[in-house]
Every structure is written in C-alpha cells, then in structure tokens.
C-alpha cells in the first residue's frame, strides 16, 4: 500500500500547496495512522479513500497553521526563465491558469480524479455528496475542455 499510494498522495499534497518537506511529513503521518487503523482492526473497505481523506485533512490543517493559501504555491513553475517560457507550450500554461482559477473544492475534486479516485471515493475525501462531486467535475473538466485547441 505504501509503495502504491505514497507517490500519488505526495503529488496531491503538493498540489494542495504543501511544500515538499511538509508533504513528506504529512504522508508519513498518514501511513503511521493507517498502521494504527489496521492494527485496531478498523474498516478495510476503500483504504485508498481513507488515505487520501486523512492526508487531505492533515494538509488543510497544516496549511492553516502556516497561514498559506493555495494560490501562493499552486502553480508548479512560478518563475520560468525566458528559455523555459519559449519551450513551455502555451496550451500547458493556459491549462494551468484554468486550474489555478477554479474554486478550491472543484480543484480538489479534479486533482483527486486525476489521481484515479472514483466519484464515491472523492465524495468521502472532500465530504460532499456524489452529485456535488459530479457537478464540480463537470464544471472543472468543462473549463479544461473549453481551452482553445481542443
């Protein structure tokens, strides 16, 4: 489980705005909690959703403690040089801009979907209804599809 989910969890935590060291700490905390959960014979259904839910909540708490906002760290490459600007495709940048402008909950749903979570799992992580997940993804993916060039 650790090998399978650590990478996707770290990527998701990074996209939520946690710097690398914080994301590593949170991931470690999540898998430690998972060990305790399994030792206590906690439910084994949808453990992937469990891992992401605990990680999501810990990440938001840590972000609050640090007083950061997602917008401060959301864009993967905040200061590309002129050569990089020339090489990065306009389309990629437009997609990044669309994602950065999404309402936070829509962005969470999109990022979790990109990690392969099903709607039911996303609903558990974000603590919203199945319909609200579909609506959030409909808005988010609809905006991505509208980016010129598709």
């Amino acid at each position: 489980m650790y090998g399978q989910w650590r990478g996707p969890l770290l990527r998701y935590l990074g996209a939520l705005g946690l710097p690398g060291a914080d994301a590593e700490d949170v991931a470690q905390e999540v898998f430690l909690a998972l060990c305790h959960h399994l030792r206590r014979e906690g439910g084994r259904e949808n453990l992937r959703g469990w891992v992401f839910r605990v990680g999501h909540n810990l990440a938001l708490r840590r972000r609050e403690q640090r007083g950061r906002t997602v917008e401060e760290v959301e864009v993967a490459d905040p200061a590309p040089g002129p050569e990089e600007l020339a090489l990065l495709s306009c389309r990629r940048e437009r997609l990044q801009a669309v994602v950065a402008a999404l309402p936070e909950r829509d962005r969470w749903c999109l990022l979790l979907r990109a990690e392969g979570l099903r709607h039911r799992e996303i609903a558990e992580v974000v603590e919203i209804s199945l319909g609200a997940v579909a609506a959030a993804l409909g808005r988010a993916v609809g905006k991505l599809a509208a980016v010129e060039g598709r």
Partner: peptide, 15 residues
C-alpha cells in the same frame, strides 16, 4: 479527452 490530458500533465509534474 480533457480529463486525460489534465491527468497526464498532472502526473508528469506539469513539466
């Protein structure tokens, strides 16, 4: 298609 493209870019670290 849009979701696939986003997923690929996201997993690839957006370059």
């Amino acid at each position: 298609g849009a979701l696939r493209e986003f997923t690929a870019l996201h997993r690839g670290g957006w370059g």
